[in-house]
Amino acid sequence: MCLGVPGKVVKIEDNALGLRMGVVDFGGTKRETCLAYLDDVQEGDWVLVHIGFAISKIDEEKAKDAFDTLKEIGL
């Protein structure tokens, strides 16, 4: 139920009510997404989306952690 799907922000705009919204592209499928909980997100950023809300911006450096650890232990 806590499913989060990574996608790329392709458009950002406030809706008529002043809520920060955007369009996120999930490998070709585009969905309207609320961006109100991310204050530093820009078009082109990858975000993690749960039930129509972006809950985090994906950190590209930290995304390598699991692989870096393997290298550190020499595997």
């Binding site: 139920m1 806590c2 109100a36 909980y37 039930i51 809300f53």
Partner: peptide
């Protein structure tokens, strides 16, 4: 839902 879902409902 858990804490993941609550912010969307709160909004």
């Amino acid at each position: 839902g858990f804490e993941t879902t609550a912010p969307a409902v709160a909004m």
